[in-house]
């Protein structure tokens, strides 16, 4: 019954639906209250099976939006649903795989040890874990590194491990924060291929980036964030006529 409900929720057209979302950070220092707006009145819909990119300048609210979707931050106003489930709901987090910006792991563990740990936390059946880890390691071409300690990993390998932990429980929605940040050209190309493979497997990919050229190459639609507000959603057909970079610059300079 739960499985049927789960499948139904995934069959819902919206993978992510954000309605009038506002996040105001309040910090008190020496009795004075300081407020900063993370995002304001943000409304956005990501369709199931699409690759949606969120672009914006540094501090435009990309990471805040992602953290609000994941329940790492709590909204000041507005609501978020993931496959029709109101968030934050920790029980529904198995529907999401998350790659943080600048992923960091405890260096004393091996890649395999960490993936086993994250698989267990995701509630995976113990018997399925070794096979799934092997599959993901193969997909990300990291089999020879699985028994090495994280301290021996390069930045690119850390990024792969972070992606592996987001994929290991086979979630229908992938949320990647700055997917290609700090990667070399070869790494960037591999990530691009990976995102396409995920789309072919029916996954929804929502990712943030400030590299417009990358977003342009892989996304079906792109949202432009500026000053915490969504200023425009651009369809692929739009940037096939006009350069996405030009659209972006004209929007943020308005």
């Amino acid at each position: 019954m739960t499985d049927i409900m789960e499948k139904n929720s995934i069959a819902i057209k919206s993978a992510i639906k954000i309605e009038t979302l506002t996040k105001i950070y309040r910090r008190s220092h020496l009795g004075r209250l300081h407020t900063t707006t993370g995002v304001k009145n943000l409304s956005l819909e990501v369709k199931t099976g699409e690759i949606f990119g969120l672009v914006g300048l540094n501090g435009s609210g990309k990471t805040t939006t992602i953290k609000l979707i994941l329940g790492l931050l709590f909204p000041t106003d507005g609501k978020i649903t993931v496959f029709g489930n109101p968030m934050p709901d920790r029980k529904k987090l198995h529907l999401i795989g998350y790659l943080p910006e600048l992923p960091y792991f405890h260096k004393k563990f091996t890649g395999k040890e960490l993936l086993v740990f994250y698989s267990k936390l995701s509630g995976m059946d113990r018997g399925l874990i070794p096979g799934r880890i092997q599959e993901i390691a193969g997909l990300l071409e990291m089999v020879p590194y699985m028994d090495k300690r994280i301290s021996d990993y390069s930045k690119g390998m850390m990024q792969r491990l972070a992606i592996a932990q987001s994929l290991v429980h086979d979630p229908p929605l992938l949320v990647f924060d700055e997917l290609v940040s700090g990667l070399d050209p070869l790494g960037i190309r591999e990530m691009r291929t990976l995102v396409q493979k995920l789309k072919e497997r029916g996954k929804t990919v929502f990712f943030s980036s400030h590299l417009i050229s990358e977003v342009e190459r892989v996304c079906d639609r792109v949202g432009i964030l500026h000053g915490g507000s969504l200023v425009r959603v651009v369809e692929q057909t739009d940037w096939q006529r006009t350069n996405l970079e030009d659209i972006f610059i004209s929007e943020v300079k308005k």
């Binding site: 999401i96 943080p100 960091y104 792991f105 405890h106 994250y118 995701s122 509630g123």
Partner: peptide, 15 residues
């Protein structure tokens, strides 16, 4: 501080 906590808290577990 190192943000490794994100990868645990985004799993489907109560805090």
């Amino acid at each position: 501080e190192s943000k490794t906590i994100y990868l645990i808290l985004i799993k489907p577990i109560p805090r």
